[in-house]
């Protein structure tokens, strides 16, 4: 697969490490959320046949974490964003 890196352009997916569902960005606050919320965060995933937002790490590149929107059936990639931007857009900060 080819991932169109927002900064570096098309790069072979072989350079990346796959992590999984981009909801891993939505980590609850450990001082407020309880075991239930963390259990949900750590274990529960959708497994869609179709569009999926997922985290890829450009390990053999610029070390950016990316959110890649990929169709799991066709492998078509429709969007690639810097995970840091996605996290900030979700209100994550410090």
């Amino acid at each position: 697969m080819i991932i169109h890196h927002p900064i570096l352009g098309p790069r072979d997916a072989q350079e990346f490490v796959y992590l999984g569902d981009a909801t891993l960005i939505d980590r609850p606050d450990g001082m407020n959320a309880g075991t239930e919320a963390f259990h949900d965060y750590a274990y529960n995933r959708d497994n869609p046949a179709g569009e999926h937002r997922e985290l890829w790490y450009h390990e053999q590149g610029d070390r950016s974490w990316l959110v890649v929107t990929r169709n799991t059936v066709t492998h078509e990639i429709t969007k690639v964003e810097l995970a840091r931007d996605v996290a900030r857009a979700k209100g994550r900060s410090k």
Binding site: L24, L55, S64, W65, L82, R84, S93, K94
Partner: peptide, 8 residues
């Protein structure tokens, strides 16, 4: 991951 995705 922690630096970029959790606490950017």
């Amino acid at each position: 991951f922690c630096r970029q995705c959790l606490w950017p």
